[in-house]
Design a protein around this nucleic acid. Structure first.
Lengths: 340, 340
DNA sequence: ACTGAAAAGGACACCGGTGTCAAAAAAAGT
DNA sequence: ACTTTTTTTGACACCGGTGTCCTTTTCAGT
């Protein structure tokens, strides 16, 4: 028994099974050129010895690491974390691990930094979160480097194999439908920042639904924010400052919606009695603010899992879905408009 | 010129510099046995060729990867994300990368899973976030596996080289001092869950400060929560349901404090006029709730950076500090108590 | 039974570094 | 100048896998 306390290597397996290490390698890599009998024999030895291939050695030999990278530029923390958990759902019990890399999309060196990072770490694939997922140069970079990638977005940014998306525009339409159903006519929107695809999608959904209902969207019912709390507060102040103020506001994300709550409160406008507010993202703040906020939630964890599977097991059924439904979460921030 | 478009390897450097690859290796690893002249010569070639050592090859040869692991059990998302950013501050421009691994502390297999993870990935070191940082078996496991580790906590859990801590107890004392200064006498606490060191520290700070001020802490001024929103709501309901209700509540984290806000609101108790509330963590919700909440903030990013440096560069000045100050953030949720 | 083609398995170099230990060079001693 | 010692450097095996290509087996065809 040459077995010590050391972890067994491919050589140990080969010796015990009485085959060459290459054959063991073939078993590990599911090569189809093996006789079933050989495969079974080796598999038994693997089980018996508790052998697990060394990812570092594989990485060196194959020139690519068993690491998935998560590239993001600090959108909301809960989103990023949920995404991480979703990826873990996919890679648990595999040899893959998840490395995270916050980046700064405003830095002129971003692409250079990422290139250098990819060169060094030889990632198996990367997951791109919005807003940087919308950067086509970045996707091109991944292709050039032979690094798999999946973009997460609100629109059809890429081929299905490289994409998980939510149907933001449709879900915003359903928000507006809901508000109209409650009796609202003067509905305002706080848009997200220019250049964000998600902002554009959500805005388009808004416009489409309003026009479908034959409702006007005057200029003073449109404000723009940065997706941050403060900007929502400012934008809402602008919307609420006019003489014919809206009875409902749709904010393109929850943080801005929370800002709108504050703006309303400071003007003695009560939510939802005097003003209905709907956000987007279903982040924790939506549930914890008062009154609890109606918002649109998307299945981040499932999307993350699907994205990871697209990279590590493109054939898996879980890797097929690309479009995921975002759905209205009804809470207490919407009521019928005041009669006046 | 044998240079192609391929990345240069240690062999290229050795050849061009006219030394052996081992000598180049010595330069990379800062070996002190080198003649200055040789070192300089090789360094120049490295620069000239733009050579960067391949982490996978190093990992294989050295038996340990250039990866830092972040093990956490989903405390608050913002904390985890800030921590990640702090770690990135430390490892940017090094060959290190950060891998994250959410774990489940309630699972009986947690230790087994982590062991298997560490065995496979051969991490350079791991960073342990509360509450699992308080698990001594886990720390022991890291030692057994020859894996560096740093625990982040609210108390002196380990030797300084393995620890970054905040002075929770003292900062809670300063919260109570502040409340007393504002005129409060009946101050209640919502404790964190049993078994959490942070909960204990915060509670002890509370008790110490109250006794220092000669104030009573009756049983009905103590409630316990789970650090989650709902539990804070429940706990606050219990505290506010008595006949001599407190004029101020200190909640051991912001989520529970937010729950307390809701409880107050539903009882028509206005914050801060009728009730002052202080939280802990300075999470985004503290700033976004209405009225903005006074809370205790700790410098997570700096702590994370220090923790990472303790692993990858123990000699660095930034790696020396172990205790970081948590500090009161004054916002609008505290006022003088109502006179009655 | 014999031949040839296809299937299965193995030998060996290689990925890009590091560890060991001996050889070469430099410094010190007499 | 010639050892002896100490400091520097290099040759070579090794980490644990995979790729290439060649040999052996297996099996169908005649």
């Amino acid at each position: 028994m040459p077995e010590t306390t050391q972890k067994p290597t491919i050589n140990d397996v080969a010796r015990v099974a009485g085959v060459s290490k290459k054959t063991v390698s073939r078993v590990i890599n599911q090569s189809p050129l093996l006789k079933q009998a050989t495969r079974t024999k080796v598999e038994n030895v693997i089980l018996q010895l508790g052998y697990r291939p060394n990812p570092q050695a594989r990485a060196l030999a194959m020139g690519r690491n068993f690491l998935l990278g998560l590239l993001h530029d600090n959108p909301n923390a809960q989103t990023v974390l949920n995404f991480q958990v979703g990826v873990l759902d996919a890679i648990r019990d595999t040899e893959f691990a998840l490395v995270v890399r916050p980046v700064d999309r405003r830095s002129p060196d971003m692409l250079k930094d990422i290139r250098s990072f990819l060169e060094l770490q030889r990632l198996y694939g990367v997951l791109l979160l919005p807003p940087i997922s919308e950067n086509d140069d970045l996707a091109q970079l991944c292709r050039d480097m032979g690094c798999g990638y999946v973009r997460m977005g609100s629109a059809k940014l890429d081929h299905a194999e490289h994409l998980v998306q939510s149907n933001d525009s449709e879900s915003v339409e359903s928000v507006i439908d809901y508000l109209v159903e409650q009796g609202h006519r003067r509905i305002a929107i706080i848009q997200g920042p220019e250049g964000f695809r998600s902002a554009k999608e959500r805005f388009e959904g808004f416009v489409a639904a309003m026009s479908r209902h034959g409702l006007a969207v005057p200029d003073d019912a449109i404000a723009r924010g940065t997706y941050r709390f403060d900007s929502g507060l400012e934008a809402a102040n602008a919307l609420l400052g006019g003489d014919r103020r809206p009875t409902a506001i749709f904010a393109s994300n929850d943080e801005m919606a929370a800002g709108a709550f504050h703006a309303a409160r400071s003007r003695n406008i009560e939510v939802p009695r005097d003003l209905s507010i709907v956000g987007f993202d279903d982040s924790p703040i939506a549930a914890h603010i008062w009154p609890p906020m109606s918002t649109v939630g998307w299945p981040i964890r499932q999307m993350a899992k699907a994205a990871a599977l697209k990279l590590i097991a493109p054939g898996d059924p879980g890797a097929q879905q690309s479009c995921f439904p975002a759905e209205l979460v009804r809470r207490a921030s919407v009521a019928s408009p005041p009669k006046d």
